[in-house]
Design a protein around this nucleic acid. Structure first.
Length: 513
RNA sequence: GGCCCCAUCGUCCAGAGGCCUAGGACACCGGCCCUUCAAGCCGGAGACGGGGAUUCGAAUUCCCCUGGGGCUACCA
């Protein structure tokens, strides 16, 4: 761990001589999967940096030793990259202000704490968790705000030395001012102020030698020369304490912008119990990253006009902190579905197929395992044609699996309502038999020829085209909805179509007995 | 409970004193198109939480109430 105060001061003097450049950061803690809300905050920071030609830093706040995990770090990195939120400095890309993991910056936090300790702005606290917990309960019972009673602040130097000598575990607390107040000009909310007497002597360094969030963010944001802190509203109450630290260290404080939270339909903070909250889950559900990013960007921000579907470049050009609203936004998956559909339809055929294919493969639909006994159908071209027939209907990539399943598996049953309507009709079996015969003779087996044949058949039978089409559709797919019948039959291929019609005819006859 | 934040259609946004008989989008309803479903197009219903104040004039400013939310850890 190479960071020392001297090095940092020196470096800042050299590099920072005149860099009031915009530097923002996202500082997730790897204690869970990348959350929708975290991702949106990252996006806003990224957009802000790009808009102003600044730098976007990613820093991993793994100062909670017990809850952080490598697996989550990877999930966060992957999720951000997938969304197209690339960081200029941070894990795996490095940068001049690293390391970008708080667990690797321990010496620096101790350095700061020692400085505070030496100046009497911090003190060791020997209270145990249990003691603290009990006192908190008592205070609450008495209707008092549960603040630390500062008893260790009153300890004499001798007592402190003795307890430390004894090896008694202790945390380090900040000696917070109890008079006056703090205020800052929040870039989205305007002036926000707090009274100091509502704050208590918060912990800077835990007994395990790891910094708390409050200490680590301030030190890192300062060391990494962060100019703007754009973060969730849930951290608004952490701000006054951070401000006190900046003041204690005599560091220039950054600008703050607290963005509203993303809410669940019941208007509470979006959490696991409301369903999918992780970016990776949306990825698996088949949402396109550009659609998801576009959608979450609009949750709390607007370009100022009525534009909604926007490219990355348009968003960058239009982004501003003024465009961020103050109230929480409910995550409406219905609208996401719509927007994802828009993006899906706008994809070029090639790109669309490329993105959709993995979902079919995962479902086993493009392999022999599908067990359809249709080896000829497993080729590349077939999959492409199948996928293309559903491009305008799909809302998500994973939904495609169901939409397209009948192309890989013969129907084992038929849609109930459809069966009643089309199969239980007078002459249904005969109709299917006639269709078989007719389609057997179609040459070539193309959309145009198939259409001509089917319409011709209807005419010969003295029927309208509709019923004939619907009956054949049900026989060939087992369903009442889907792509245009002629297109669908062409892709399925003559052999398979005839087999399915025959099977359906058998089914109808059997049911009639 | 205490501290802090917020408040326009069901939802996401526009609206920064007269342009608002409040605009767009999703969802919803109806119609068109059509072999179904989707897509697309056309139309409809749908909101300024309440009360004061300022002003010639308020969705827009101020105050109060109400409602919602966040925080209140040796988590971040």
């Amino acid at each position: 761990m190479a960071l020392t105060a001297w090095q940092i001061e020196n470096r800042n003097k050299i590099e920072g001589a005149m860099s009031n450049e915009i530097r923002v950061r996202m500082a997730p803690s790897p204690t869970g999967l990348l959350h929708i809300g975290t991702a949106r905050t990252a996006l806003y920071n990224w957009l802000f940096a790009r808009r102003h030609g600044g730098v976007f830093v990613l820093r991993i706040e793994d100062s909670d030793r017990t809850r952080s995990s490598e697996e989550y770090v990877q999930n966060i990195l992957d999720g951000l990259r997938w969304l197209g939120v690339e960081w200029d400095e941070g894990p795996e890309v490095g940068g001049p202000y690293g390391p970008y993991f708080q667990s690797q910056r321990l010496a620096r936090y101790h350095e700061v704490v020692d400085d505070l300790l030496a100046r009497g702005l911090a003190y060791p606290c020997f209270c145990t968790r249990e003691e603290l917990e009990q006192r908190r309960k008592e205070m609450q019972k008495q209707g008092l705000p549960p603040r630390y009673d500062r008893r260790c602040r009153a300890l004499s130097e001798e007592e402190r030395a003795r307890l430390i000598e004894e090896g008694k575990p202790h945390a380090i607390r900040f000696a917070a001012p109890d008079e006056g107040g703090v205020a800052w000009e929040d870039l989205v909310r305007g002036e926000v102020q707090f009274e100091n007497n509502a704050l208590d002597d918060f912990v800077l360094m835990k007994a395990d030698g790891f910094p708390t969030y409050l200490l680590a963010v301030v030190v890192d944001d300062h060391d990494m020369r962060i100019s703007h802190i754009i973060r969730g509203e849930d951290l608004i109450s952490a701000t006054p304490r951070q401000l006190h630290l900046y003041q204690a260290m005599d560091w220039e404080r950054p600008q703050f912008a607290h963005i509203p939270l993303i809410l669940a339909p019941d208007r509470s903070k979006l959490s696991k119990r409301h369903g999918a909250t992780a970016i990776s889950e949306y990825r698996e559900m088949g949402y396109l990253p550009e659609a998801l990013a576009n959608f979450i960007a609009l949750l709390g921000w607007s370009p100022g006009d009525d534009r909604e579907v926007m490219t990355r470049e348009e968003m960058i050009a239009a982004f501003s902190l003024e465009g961020i609203g103050k109230s929480g936004a409910v995550f409406d998956i219905e609208k996401l579905n719509w927007m994802n559909g828009v993006y899906l339809r706008r994809l070029s055929p090639e790109e669309y197929v490329e993105r959709a294919r993995p979902f079919l493969e995962k479902a086993g639909l493009s392999t022999d395992e599908a067990g359809m006994g249709m080896p000829a159908l497993q080729n590349d071209d077939y999959i492409k044609r199948v996928l293309l027939l559903e491009q305008e209907r799909a809302k998500t990539l994973s939904e495609l699996v169901d939409l397209v399943e009948f192309f890989f598996r013969r129907p084992e049953s038929y849609d109930e309502k459809g069966e009643r309507k089309w199969f239980q009709r007078e002459g249904a079996a005969e109709l299917l038999a006639a269709a078989e015969k007719k389609l057997a003779a179609v040459e070539p087996f193309s959309v145009e020829q198939i259409e001509a044949a089917v319409r011709g058949l209807a005419e010969e039978l003295g029927m309208k085209a509709g019923p004939v089409i619907h009956t054949i559709r049900l026989a060939a797919t087992g369903r009442t909805k889907g792509p245009g019948l002629f297109e669908l039959l062409e892709v399925l291929g003559r052999e398979e179509v005839l087999a399915r019609l025959a099977a359906a005819r058998g089914h109808v006859q059997k049911a009639a007995e």
